[in-house]
Every structure is written in structure tokens, then in C-alpha cells.
């Protein structure tokens, strides 16, 4: 098998971010291939979210590059391409799922409009078709299609998170960035959401970067892991390898700190 036969979808090289001299993340490099799920774990303040923002064109790094394999023009440095091209990528080819669904949803419009927005943004002008796509996606994220015209505020946290996921996936993105997608949900809701995410990722062949502080979530969703501490990646590798045979003192501490119910 030739691992390099398929080029990576996203490559981060030496990504470093300082906030006015304060370290966000330093010298982070990795690659993600199509269909691959990369977990980023570490405690609060370890730079996970900074890294996620840097690689998703939301926060320009102080140093380093992020290269994305575009559909038509080959690899492109996401901070060097034109702003319109970058913004188009962000609302078509990429998805971003926030921990707090309020940040990722338009709270003032219905569930259907939330899902349809990205379609309208790329030129869909047929109400019936948009509505059909919205129904389809509500169904895929296992929501009641009868509630399509309800405002997100009327949904539970888990449902809002599903809606956010549907809103992101409707344009068939190739990579989705998720910041603690199951954070803030109670465990039973979390389990069903994990199952849904896992199914969607594998059925759609999505690549994903999932930031989480929950090692169980990382184990169930990701193929590979980065362990971050104080802004740096201290260990990386196959998820089960990192969790079952951690090498770095910090990874060992992290794994041994998990409380098993």
C-alpha cells in the first residue's frame, strides 16, 4: 500500500500562534487525509481551540502554513488565497461545529432556514428544492421533520447540536472542524450524538478534526490523536496506540486521570 498515493486533504506545517506574546500553540504539524478523523486532546488552555481556529482559516497563525487540497486548483495555502475564495471554501467545502450551538446557528430563524442558508449562500433559488434538502438533512440527523419550521430556541441542546451539524453538512463539505461537539450535553444525549457523528463521518467519507478534552469521545470518533500541552503537541499517533500505550509523561498522566464509572 502506498500511503502517499492519495495526497493529504489538509497539511499544517509549523503552525504557531501568539496572542500579543502569549503562546496559543507552537510549531504544530500534521496532515489529514480524506475520510480521516483526527482528534486533538489536552486539558483546558492547552491550545486545542487555537489550533482548530488556525487550521480552519478563522485565525491567521503567527507562523507556519496551512495547506488545503482544493477541488479544482490543487493544494493552496489557505491564508494566501484570495479572501473570496477562502470565504467560499469556509461555507461550502468546510464545516465548523461549535461547542455552543448558539454560535453556529442563526437563532432567529427556523430549523429549515438554518439548514437551507448555506444552499442559498451558494445560489440555490428554488424554495421547494431547498425545503426538500432541509427535510432530508433533518432526517439524516434523526430529527423530527415536523419541527422544521420551529425556531432553534425551542429545541433541546442535543437537538440544537444536530441542527448545527445538518446546517454544516448540507453543502457536502469535505472536512468538518468540531470544537467539543458533545460538550455540555448529558451523557445519554452525548452517546447518541457520537453514534450519529460516527455514522455520518464514515458514510460521507468526511475528514474531521475534533477538539475534545474527553478521551472517551476521542477514542470513539477519531482515527488518530494529537495530545497537546501548553500549546505544543507532545504526542501523536493512532488513537488506540496513544491511549493504550502512551509514551509521553503528560499523555500517561492524562490517560491515567480518566475516571471510569
Amino acid at each position: 500500500m502506498q500511503p502517499d498515493a492519495v495526497p493529504p486533504l489538509l497539511s499544517a506545517r509549523g503552525v504557531t500562534k501568539f496572542y500579543d506574546g502569549i503562546l496559543g500553540c507552537r510549531d504544530v504539524s500534521f496532515e489529514i487525509w480524506p475520510g480521516e478523523v483526527l482528534g486533538v486532546v489536552g486539558e483546558s488552555g492547552s491550545g486545542k481551540t487555537t489550533l482548530l481556529h488556525c487550521i480552519s482559516a478563522r485565525l491567521e497563525p503567527t507562523a507556519g502554513t496551512v495547506e488545503y487540497m482544493t477541488r479544482h486548483d490543487g493544494p493552496a495555502d489557505i491564508y494566501r488565497i484570495s479572501e473570496p475564495a477562502r470565504r467560499l471554501l469556509m461555507r461550502t467545502d468546510w464545516g465548523f461545529v461549535h461547542q455552543n450551538p448558539r454560535e453556529g446557528l442563526r437563532m432567529g430563524v427556523s430549523a429549515g432556514a438554518n439548514i437551507g442558508e448555506r444552499l442559498m449562500a451558494v445560489g440555490a433559488r428554488h424554495y421547494g428544492n431547498i425545503r426538500h434538502a432541509a427535510t432530508d438533512w433533518l432526517d439524516k440527523v434523526e430529527m423530527d421533520t415536523g419541527r422544521m419550521d420551529d425556531l432553534p430556541i425551542t429545541f433541546s441542546g442535543g437537538m440544537q447540536q444536530r441542527l448545527q451539524i445538518a446546517r454544516n453538512l448540507v453543502t457536502a463539505p469535505r472536512i468538518v472542524f468540531m470544537d467539543e461537539p458533545t460538550g455540555g450535553l448529558d451523557v445519554s444525549v452525548q452517546a447518541r450524538l457520537l453514534d450519529l457523528l460516527r455514522g455520518l463521518v464514515s458514510d460521507l467519507g468526511l475528514a474531521a478534526v475534533i477538539v475534545t478534552h474527553d478521551l472517551a469521545v476521542a477514542r470513539l470518533l477519531s482515527h488518530r490523536l494529537l495530545v497537546m500541552r501548553r500549546g505544543e503537541v507532545v504526542e501523536s499517533g493512532l488513537t488506540d496506540q496513544v491511549l493504550d500505550d502512551p509514551q509521553h509523561p503528560y499523555s500517561q498522566l492524562l490517560v491515567s486521570s480518566v475516571i471510569h464509572p
Binding site: 493512532l238 493504550d244 500505550d245
Partner: peptide, 9 residues
């Protein structure tokens, strides 16, 4: 077994 499965390094 775990080394064969690459579960262990």
C-alpha cells in the same frame, strides 16, 4: 498480540 495489531508501539 497488541504489538502485532499496532495497538502498542
Amino acid at each position: 498480540l497488541r504489538c502485532i495489531y499496532a495497538n502498542y508501539r
